[in-house]
Every structure is written in structure tokens, then in C-alpha cells.
Design a protein around this nucleic acid. Structure first.
Length: 709
DNA sequence: CTAGGGTTAG
């Protein structure tokens, strides 16, 4: 029988069964050539267990002794399987290392999260006198990129130039990828434009580079040019473009890509594409499209679930998001950190504290507790659900805090009106040798504005550029305008807007408008309202704010004029809506809601409360009602505000002394604020209420905001 | 032996 056939048989047995091979040692022994061929095929298929067996066979039969050729192949095999420790043992035993071996080892390290070792080995290679070649550089550059070693990367780049390999397409593409990881798209673009030859990978690298660096428009531009260059998009291209569409909410293009994917489903296969489409539709607020795709996916992976769950969460449907999460768990899909982060986000929207706490214990069991993003999401969840002490505890337990976790903690204090704590947390951060970034500064400035800490806020604002080299951006100006305006310095706020270095946004004018409502400055209110209407004609909140101002001045003609504007634009005021959690169930009440099963009891409770409050001296403050109607009607219009329904419901369904937590989608009105203070005293309950801006802690007839909000 | 690939907190 000739040797070729037995070799084929052996190959076959290795590829199909492993038991057979182990039980029947091969005889006669394999030649080195045979071993080499088999190893090669095992390397290509990454058949680790089989290769390991062949390895032991080669050791016992002496094939490896003094055989550099086979040893090299074997090291390459282990490296390709990502078994770098084993590869290294063999590598170290080889005296005559050729470039193939060096390259394979560097690649192994670079592709298996040992980028630093890849770089060390690269330097070793050079000092051994082995020259780097076109196979070496791509992985060295990848390692530099992954480690974000900008200086090292540049040095390797210059070595590439010296070696004359800059025009090698693999090397050139690796350079593009490296600079895009560094965030230097300008340089990447320059290299890309200078390339004499570009392939699909070059284009894809540029597209995904622009997307990852927050420049989706440029990504689309490159995509368009790519079409002109008559290059056909593949799955990777489309992934990048879909991300860009999602980012830009470019539904039309997204749909075209979708159609293209369906049309080319024979040629373009990419397991990620459907998830990417789901994500794109979610971002474009087309939940129905997403859901249809999602429901059609037979084998939903974690990412499909995550994207869909997040879609609902981001589009304000926290309930559907939580329902889907429960389904995910029941169907046995694997929950990961991203799922948890998303679900915690859904919990904060509706203040589902108890649900959030059970997610907390679940994530600890799963071992996600050490993930800093999860930790930060927890801080946020607890503070948004009204439990700042839990936030602090989670915060303390994060061993290596980053700026985002600090920022979340500071924001938490801010939202709860604890300005002093926010500032001391900020000082703590500085004392821990962190340099505040934009986000941290926004959080602390916002905390100052909630607590009315005018001098502290101004001080931080004035020093941020000098001390931390952070130029004030819109968010910072917005906080400062809010801070000044709320504290009654509306003219100073106005001056600030007029002199600020960035173009004021509609939000900034809206902050001033809101301050004008608080301090009854009709003239300036009209100026700022005009600006908001120009810049954000669909923002219904500002029309309401202005008409509230007129209503409080009893200028009913003006109220009607503004209301007519709202009508003519076809805008609708979102109905007031409050959430309250009882026994792990979150209940939702709309203004005037009569749909809840316990409606009857709730309204009876409200009636009883109304009487008792009046006995206690309550006088309704009807200035928040902006209809020109009889006083009695106006009073009634206050009484079915959603937060009151929620409070009444909670009073009925929870034991004496239980803290009540309410979350409202709009700002709490003056009268509700007064009523809640009184209820907290009368019923001896702590009521924690979150409105669209901040928290109010009501206890014994007082609110933590000190009526400053 | 080579380069590029979707979801995550303020």
C-alpha cells in the first residue's frame, strides 16, 4: 500500500474521531513530512485537542528531536489556537528561529489579548537580528493600536517607512486601523488618500473608524466614494453603515440597506447584520420594524435581546423593556453585563427600586459586580429610584473608580438637592488625583444649581478652564444659566447667554425662560420664549411655560394666544404621569386616570385627604392652572394630578410608616408640592418624589428642597 | 502566516 493513501486515512481519522487515534497508536511511526502536513491542516482548522495528541505522539516517537522545521510548525499550531503558554515553551526551545516563527508568535500574542507581550517579542526579534517583514508589522501595529500606545505606534510607523513596507496593502491597512483606534482619523485619512492601491478592507477600516470616532457623516461620505470606485460592500461595510444610520437616525438609508441585505442574502452573510438592523431601527425610533425583525430571528443571541430591550428602554417604554427581559430570562438566553446595564436603566425610568434591587442581587451572583460600568449603572439606578444611601454604598465598593462613577455619584447628590455633599464628593475626587472632565464638571455645576449654591458654582465655572483646561461647553453654560436664573439673577443669566463663546442652544434659552417663570419676569420670558420657539418649534414645554407665566399674571388673552400656537402646530402636551412601586409592581397613573382597578378607592382616599388638609389650613394654589375658569373648577383640576393619585394609591396599599416613592414625568406643580408636604405630616409618611428635574424628600411637613426648585 | 466587524454608564 502506498504511503499517500495511509496519510489520507490518518488525516481523515484525525479530523473525524479522536478516540480511535488514542487507542490505536499508529504504526509504522509517522515520518516528519507526514507530521508536518497534518500539523498544517490542524493549524488551519484550529483543532486543538487533535494537535495536542499529535504533539505527544511526536514526542514519544522522537520526531521533534532536533527538528526545527517541525518544532516551528508546532509552535505555530499552538499560537494559532491561542495557547500562547504552550507555544512559548516550544518557541523558547528552538535555537534557529526564522521569521515565520517570530511572526506567528507575535500574531498569537497580538490576537489573544497579550498585546504587550507581542511588542516585547517584536523588540526581541529585532535585537536577535531578525528583520521585521510585511507579516510582522500588521500585528505589531495592531498591538500598538489595542494598547493605545500612541508614541510606540508612531515609532513603529517610522520603522515601517524605513523598511519601505508602507505601501504593502496589509501594512497600510493595519496603519489605518491603528490610527483610527488612536482616534486620529485625520492621519488615517491622509494615509488612506495617499494609498496607491485600496481594497475592501481599506474602505471598511475607514468607514468603521469614522463611525467609532463619532463621525458618522464622514463614514457615509466614504461609503459613497466607495460606491463610485465600484467596490461592492460586504457585511462589514454594511455593519459600519448601519451604525452610522443609527447614529444619524437616517431611517431612509437604513431601510435601503435593509432591502439590499435582503436582496443579497445569498452573497452577504453576516451573523451580526440582523442585530445591527434591529439596533438601527430602534435608534430611528421605529420599534415596530425592530420588533418584526427580532421576532423573526429564530436563534436570538444575547445581543439581539439586548438591542431590543434597549430599544424599548431608550424609547421610554420601560415596562415593555422589563417584560422582554423577563421573557429573555425565562427562555434561558444568556444575560450579560449589557443586559443588566440596560435593565437598570429601565428601572430608573419608572423608579422600580425593588425590581432594581433584585437585579442587583442577580448581577452579584453572576459575578458582574466588579464591572465598573455595571457599578456606575447601579449608582445611577439607586439614586434615580430615590435611595441615595444605597448609591453611596455601591460607590464605596467600587475599587477603582473612574470619572464616570464619580460623576454619577455627584449627579446623585445634585438631583437630591444635597449640594454640599456633591461638592465635597467633587473635592474628594480632586484629592484622589483625578482631573475633572467635562462630565464631572457638568454634574457638579448642576448640583450647585439644584442647591442654589451660586458662589460655589460660579467659582467652579470660572476656574474650570484655568485649572483643568476644560473649555465651558453648552452643558456647562446651561447649568450656569440655570443656577443664576433660579437664584433670581435673571439679568446676569441673560448677559451670560449674550456673551458666551458657543452658540446658545434652545435648552439654554429654555433654562432662562423657566427662571423667568419662577421670578415672574414677563419681559425677559418673552424674549427667551421667542428664541426657544425659533430654535425648537416643536418643544411643547416652552409654550406651556410661557402660557403658565401669562396665566399667573391672569393675562388670559395671551394664554389663549400661546395655546392657539400650540394647536396650530399640532403639538400636544404630554399628559402628566406618575409611577409608584408596590410589592415589586410598578403602577402608572395618568392625570385624571380612572383606569386603575382600585380607582374607586383611590378617589375616595383623595377626597378624604382633601377634607383633612383643608381642616389643617390648606389653601389651594391655583396659579398652576392655566385655564380661565371658576376658582372651584380650578381646584378640582389640581386634584387629579397624577402624583396625587399615586400617593393616594400608595397610602392605601402600604403599611403605616412605609416610605412612598413617586416618579413623575413632568415638573411637580406648586400646589402638589404643598399638598405633599402636608400629607407627609398628616399621614406621618416619608414621601420621596422625583420629577423631571430633581428629587423632593418630604418629611414632617417639609421638603428637602427648602421650596427652592 | 497577514489587515477591518454589532450591543454597554454621566
Amino acid at each position: 500500500m502506498n504511503g499517500n493513501i495511509s496519510l489520507k486515512l490518518l488525516k481523515k481519522s484525525l479530523c473525524t474521531t479522536t478516540v480511535h487515534f488514542k487507542e490505536q497508536p499508529l504504526s509504522p511511526p509517522l515520518t516528519s513530512l507526514q507530521c508536518g502536513t497534518i500539523l498544517q491542516s490542524l493549524t488551519n482548522t484550529k483543532s486543538f485537542p487533535k494537535g495536542q495528541k499529535l504533539h505527544s505522539l511526536m514526542v514519544t516517537s522522537g520526531n521533534l528531536l532536533n527538528n526545527t522545521y517541525l518544532s516551528t510548525k508546532l509552535a505555530a499550531f499552538y499560537a494559532n489556537c491561542g495557547r500562547m503558554a504552550q507555544a512559548r515553551v516550544i518557541f523558547d526551545g528552538i535555537l534557529l528561529k526564522n521569521s515565520f516563527l517570530w511572526n506567528f508568535m507575535i500574531r498569537g500574542y497580538a490576537c489573544n489579548e497579550c498585546s504587550l507581550k507581542a511588542l516585547v517579542l517584536y523588540r526581541e526579534m529585532l535585537s536577535f537580528g531578525q528583520k521585521a517583514d510585511n507579516f510582522t508589522y500588521p500585528f505589531v501595529l495592531k498591538a500598538c493600536g489595542d494598547l493605545l500606545l500612541v508614541e510606540t505606534g508612531r515609532r513603529v510607523h517610522s520603522e515601517v517607512v524605513v523598511s519601505g513596507l508602507e505601501s504593502d496593502i496589509y501594512v497600510a491597512n493595519a496603519l489605518l486601523a491603528m490610527y483610527s483606534k488612536f482616534g486620529d482619523m485625520g492621519l488615517a485619512r491622509m494615509l488612506f488618500d495617499r494609498m496607491l492601491e485600496r481594497d475592501l478592507i481599506s474602505w471598511n477600516t475607514m468607514i468603521s473608524g469614522y463611525v467609532k470616532n463619532g463621525n458618522p457623516r464622514k463614514a457615509l461620505e466614504v461609503f459613497e466614494k466607495m460606491g463610485k470606485a465600484e467596490l461592492k460592500a460586504d457585511g462589514t461595510t454594511l455593519l459600519g453603515i448601519l451604525s452610522a444610520c443609527a447614529e444619524l437616525m437616517a431611517l431612509k438609508l437604513g431601510k435601503e440597506i435593509h432591502a439590499y441585505v435582503v436582496r443579497k442574502s445569498g452573497e452577504i452573510r453576516n451573523e451580526f447584520l440582523t442585530n445591527s438592523l434591529i439596533e438601527m431601527y430602534c435608534n430611528c425610533k421605529s420599534l415596530a420594524y425592530s420588533r418584526r425583525l427580532f421576532d423573526g430571528v429564530k436563534l436570538k443571541d444575547t445581543v439581539s435581546w439586548n438591542s431590543m430591550i434597549r430599544g424599548y428602554e431608550q424609547n421610554g417604554d420601560a415596562f415593555e423593556s422589563l417584560r422582554l427581559f423577563c421573557r429573555m430570562v425565562m427562555e434561558g438566553a444568556e444575560v450579560d453585563e449589557v443586559t443588566i446595564i440596560t435593565i437598570l436603566g429601565a428601572c430608573d425610568q419608572i423608579s422600580a427600586l425593588q425590581f432594581g434591587m433584585s437585579v442587583h442581587s442577580c448581577l452579584v451572583k453572576k459575578g458582574f459586580g466588579a464591572n465598573i460600568i455595571v457599578g456606575t449603572a447601579l449608582i445611577d439606578m439607586y439614586s434615580k429610584c430615590g435611595s441615595l444611601s444605597c448609591s453611596r454604598r455601591v460607590f464605596e465598593e467600587i475599587p477603582r473608580k473612574n470619572l464616570v462613577s464619580w460623576s454619577a455619584m455627584i449627579s446623585g447628590y445634585g438631583a437630591h438637592g444635597q449640594g454640599e455633599e456633591a461638592i465635597s464628593c467633587y473635592h474628594e475626587l480632586v484629592a484622589n488625583n483625578f482631573t475633572p472632565d467635562e462630565g464631572v464638571l457638568t454634574s457638579v455645576l448642576s448640583a450647585c444649581s439644584h442647591a442654589g449654591l451660586v458662589n460655589e458654582g460660579k467659582h467652579i465655572f470660572n476656574r474650570m478652564t484655568i485649572e483643568y483646561n476644560v473649555k465651558p461647553r453648552l452643558a456647562h453654560y446651561s447649568c450656569l444659566v440655570d443656577l443664576l436664573g433660579r437664584a433670581g439673577h435673571v439679568h446676569e443669566a441673560y448677559e451670560l447667554i449674550k456673551t458666551m463663546e458657543v452658540k446658545p442652544s434652545s435648552d439654554i434659552w429654555a433654562a432662562l425662560l423657566s427662571a423667568c417663570r419662577l421670578h415672574k419676569n414677563v419681559k425677559l420670558a418673552e424674549v427667551s420664549a421667542q428664541k426657544v420657539f425659533e430654535m425648537n418649534p416643536k418643544g411643547v414645554g416652552s409654550y406651556i411655560c410661557l402660557s403658565n407665566i401669562y396665566a399667573s399674571e391672569k393675562r388670559w388673552d395671551d394664554v389663549e394666544r400661546v395655546r392657539a400656537m400650540v394647536r396650530s402646530k399640532g403639538l400636544k402636551k404630554p399628559p402628566g404621569c406618575s409611577f409608584v412601586e408596590v410589592d415589586k409592581m410598578v403602577h402608572r397613573f395618568l392625570v385624571g386616570d380612572k383606569s386603575h382597578p382600585q380607582t374607586h378607592d383611590v378617589y375616595a382616599k383623595l377626597k378624604e385627604l382633601n377634607l383633612r388638609l383643608k381642616e389643617a389650613g390648606y389653601k389651594p394654589d391655583t396659579t398652576s392652572v392655566f385655564y380661565d375658569v371658576e376658582e372651584e373648577v380650578r381646584e378640582k383640576m389640581l386634584w387629579d394630578h397624577s402624583e396625587r393619585l399615586a400617593i393616594a394609591f400608595a397610602l392605601i396599599n402600604t403599611g403605616p410608616g412605609t416610605t412612598i416613592r413617586i416618579t413623575k414625568n413632568l415638573r411637580v406643580c406648586n400646589d402638589c408640592h404643598t399638598v405633599t408636604k402636608m400629607i407627609s405630616e398628616l399621614m406621618n409618611r416619608e414621601i420621596i418624589m422625583r420629577d423631571i428635574h430633581r428629587f423632593h424628600h418630604f418629611r414632617h411637613g417639609f421638603c428637602s428642597c427648602g421650596d427652592y426648585w
